[in-house]
Amino acid sequence: MNRITETIQALKQQKRKALITYIVNGDPTPEITLAAMHALVSAGTDILEIGVPFSDPMAEGPVIQRGHERALAHGTSLRSTLALVKAFRETDKATPIVLMGYANPVERMGYGEFAQSAAEAGVDGLLTVDLPPEEAEDLHRCLRERELESIFLLAPTSSEERVKRVAELAGGFIYYVSLKGVTGASHLDISSVREKLSVISRYSQLPVMVGFGIKDGLSAQAVGTYADGVVVGSALVEIMGSGHSQTQILEGLSNKVASIRTALDQNSK
């Protein structure tokens, strides 16, 4: 069984919600990312989502855009991200890792080569923001051959028809974008999230994680009431880009994640 499914099932048995945390590889420098990943896990992360920087991150708000730019300034690439995962796996063989990025770096490497290298490095899934199911079939096939999951997004504007289509290809979990907007936006509407989640559950057995706009314990707890878990990204990338020392950044990450973890675990009581 894939680490993602294993982790989520274990959480279900404990009646706990999943906490997925996102940072960009190489942000603000390549040296910090490995330590940051371990810090995120120690503070209560269940699944790590590692951003692969891209020159044109169309779906990101300003905070994560700057994270991509900082990472690219140091030459961070898809290849160096796979090397990072390999290094992480030397000491952590259990925490699932999802890579999140854009289609072009994966296309450039080649779908087959990517799937093989990612599986060997210890990656568990791939979320390609600009590769919807219509365009994802070839990549999906390569990922399946290596037992990697294709993670897909659904949005408030997704029709039932599209929910169905995504459900056919999706593996691991479904990532529900909680609002019309870019990452880090602030107009989260819990009741509309709740409504859409019930539509998704009609077509897919997969757990649904909610992201975009979740920045603290309060919003995580509110969304966690209805979702199987939450994704926190911009709030962490903001800390990465704060300009503080490595020690301060790692401490900031740990505190943030621990507070969200505590709030989220209120849901299981």
């Binding site: 919807p132 365009e135 897909f152 949005a155 504007t157 599209r162 974008v177």
Partner: peptide, 22 residues
């Protein structure tokens, strides 16, 4: 129908925009 010119074209956007493009 899906916006392809041979292997080119298509719709490589995030999910939120599909509705608007349709």
């Amino acid at each position: 129908e899906r916006g392809h010119f041979g292997q080119f074209g298509g719709r490589f956007v995030s999910e939120t925009l599909f509705y608007a493009l349709d």
